[in-house]
């Protein structure tokens, strides 16, 4: 076909566009050509499709067999519609005399742990005093199914409290990180990191921005990570909020 308006090397230019290797001058020329001849976009499209066929020429590589399940589970996890109420119990504070005992029961803390963390326990008590306080249950997954815990959230404060039992003490240089995943998103919110004792316990207080306070729609996840790694969850999932 005669295309009088096209430069002689138009095909090469279009190939360069598909390959993304045009010089700025060439790119300008191609943009102009595409504006004047919208049908050329079909050529670009086709060459990009051809380029995308290149990997078919690679030797066949099977991904590890567990990956399929991992992906489908992760997909279902994210797609799960939030149940109307996920928290295990909403505590309308009527704490009178036996505040510490109540806290110990609610959070599954033993007295020893409570004594060790008087200051933190005080924070828990303060949090529990607020009628808005909500408590979410955390359960262990995979190799750490024995782990259990609670997350105490007061939406009016910029702190959340995490208590955990039976979660092995992380190795040196490692920490547990708490994340929140909003429905439909694949980018988790990072809440903070903590360790556990040799007894597998913790009572951690995390400061978080008020606009990132966990809500019942958010899936809570705890992973084991290097304590200095970038804030992207890459390590194994050890606990999650129970639905």
């Amino acid at each position: 076909m005669i295309r009088p308006s096209l430069p002689e090397n138009w095909e090469e230019l279009i190939a360069g566009y598909a390959l993304n290797d045009l010089s700025p001058e060439e790119a300008k020329l191609v943009e102009q050509l595409l504006d004047e001849n919208p049908a050329l976009m079909g050529e670009v499209n086709q060459l990009q499709e051809v380029l995308a066929l290149l990997p078919y020429g690679l030797p066949r590589q099977e991904p590890p067999s567990h990956l399929r399940l991992t992906i489908l589970e992760a997909a279902q996890e994210g797609a799960r519609t939030p149940k109307p109420r996920r928290r295990t119990h909403r505590i309308w504070l009527e704490l009178s005399g036996a505040v510490a005992v109540f806290v110990a029961i609610a959070l599954g803390l033993d007295n020893y742990r409570l004594r060790q963390d008087l200051e933190s326990a005080d924070a828990v008590i303060q949090a529990l005093r607020q009628p808005e306080t909500e408590v979410y249950a955390l359960e262990g997954t995979g190799e750490t199914t024995a782990a259990s815990g609670r997350l105490v959230v007061n939406p009016n404060q910029d702190q959340i409290l995490v208590t955990v039992q039976n979660l092995p003490e992380p190795a040196a240089g490692q920490a547990y990180r708490l994340w929140g995943l909003t429905p439909g998103s694949t980018t988790p919110i990072y809440y903070g990191q903590f360790g556990t004792t040799a007894q597998g316990e913790t009572l951690a207080q995390l400061s978080i921005p008020r606009d990132a306070i966990p809500t019942e729609e958010i899936q809570l996840l705890i992973t084991l990570e290097s304590s200095t790694a970038p804030l992207i969850p890459e390590g194994p999932l050890v606990m999650q909020s129970s639905l």
Binding site: P55, Y56, L58, P59, R60, Q61, E62, P63, L67, R68, I71, L72, A75, Q76, A79
Partner: peptide
């Protein structure tokens, strides 16, 4: 919203994606 379609696409293209 049917996750089994994701499974079918995975079966079809995971070798290609992973290999690349």
């Amino acid at each position: 919203g049917r996750v089994e379609a994701l499974g079918a696409l995975y079966d079809r293209y995971s070798n290609l994606v992973y290999g690349l």
